[in-house]
Design a protein around this nucleic acid. Structure first.
Lengths: 245, 245
DNA sequence: AAAATTTTGTTGCCTGTGCAACATGATGTG
DNA sequence: CACATCATGTTGCACAGGCAACAAAATTTT
């Protein structure tokens, strides 16, 4: 089957041509493996030497928390990288389980082959290595961004931190977010209803405007913020808004 | 000056001999730079091509959150890696500022030199690359572990998730944590007082026992725990705490 | 040893938000 | 169209935990 085109869209293969990708797949010893629904792709506690790329199907990485409740870490879809951090860490056992949630195909590439230079010393192999490192680093930075949101004390602050980041990424005060309310609430670790409630309030307060996934950050400082029936524009708002921008 | 010995203790240089480290420093073009107290090591918004290793002194990475409040991301000490995720991500501007909090020495190594094979094609260069990737991956996994704690709904769950991890790392039910209450509270994003309060309750409930930084996880089945009323069992806390270790 | 400083523990108050339950709007399906 | 199934918004209530202020214990400095 021809999945080269799909692969070329991944950041792991940016700036690498179709032809080169084919060669790389061969010289890295990549293999395509199929998994039935519910089959385990990675088992908790087992050492990992390959990382994977979802070619088709879907999956999720799961873990059991302190109280035995199962929690979903990530949802995997076509194009998702599997266990890339784990495979990259020397001698590391998997802290989580990855399971196919539908019949899936996964391209498995031995981590070693990324590092070990191929015989021909081809330049595209170095490009692959650069991309690979970039992908790992980006994973870390993404986690970092999420932590930035999670650390904010109030629901409103979490939301604002998230929205500001997306606005910044899209380089505009008007933007659309790529996730729905459920996912957003999960990402920010707040209640979905609390998220909706606070979004409404923020709209009332003139902080943001939105409809569904379309958002706008108002950069005008609101004149009056009313809370609990009192107007606290004078001091409190200065404290809260003064330093922005 | 001779900092090779210090370097050899870092995971970036594990399994690399003193001699080889010297050679590597030369062929990667590492330079040692000094920073005065309060001087900026990394400036927000600027592109980063080097990563750094703290040889002496101290520093911190800082950021400004949505409401303009300055928040400290990491504290840097001797041996800390600076900007390793940022340098590894292709064409990425720094999302944060790094500042020396005392006169410091930083070893700066161009990211490019890690990837580009040196002329001699020496095996230690590949080892360095492996270590480097391992370090990045570990950073990501660490962030992941913290998120695991942050996502837990209650203070008690956050604490338990953290303690279980440390116990697991030290492979024992009796262990010592490497951080004090202030840092722990900051790490888990809870109030220090709330942390102390909950730790007390957990001791009363027979879940854990502790004194200062020495902890013990009780593996009693959490069945016989009474919620609000008086607790029947587990009244007797350990008397001989001494130094565990 | 006394004093000063840092670290940890304790407690009452009050608000933010988790939770549940329901309403409304959007989208798909026969 | 009617109907089902989502996604989103609304609201009352209860309580976990943030906050502040203080107490006690441990550690460092004088």
């Amino acid at each position: 089957m021809n999945y080269i085109e799909d692969l070329s869209k991944l950041s792991l293969f940016t700036e690498i041509s179709f032809e080169e990708i084919k060669k790389l797949l061969h010289c890295t010893g990549a293999i395509c493996r199929t998994y039935k629904k519910d089959e385990l792709i990675i088992e908790e506690g087992k050492p990992i030497t390959d990382f994977g790329i979802m070619l088709s199907g879907s999956g999720c990485s799961i873990k059991w928390n302190a109280s035995g409740r199962q929690i979903i870490i990530t949802l995997l879809e076509k194009g998702s990288m599997i266990g890339i951090l784990i495979a990259s860490k020397a001698m590391h056992k998997s802290p989580l389980t990855v399971q196919a949630t539908s019949d899936s195909q996964v391209l498995r590439i031995p981590f070693n082959s990324i590092i070990t230079r191929c015989m021909k010393n081809c330049p595209c192999h170095e490009k692959l290595l650069r991309n690979y490192i970039s992908v790992i680093a980006e994973k870390g930075l993404e986690l970092h961004e999420r932590i930035n949101c999670l650390l904010e004390p109030t629901v409103r602050d979490k939301i604002m931190t998230y929205l500001r980041r997306i606005a910044h990424q899209q380089n505009s005060h008007t933007f659309t977010i790529p996730i729905n309310r459920n996912i957003m609430a999960e990402y920010l670790n707040i209640e979905r209803s609390a998220l909706s409630r606070e979004l409404s309030k923020m709209k009332k307060d003139g902080l943001i405007d939105y409809h569904r996934n379309s958002f706008r950050l108002q950069k005008t400082t609101p004149k009056a913020i009313v809370k609990n029936g009192q107007n606290l524009s004078a001091q409190a708002s200065l404290k809260e808004w003064g330093k922005i921008e």
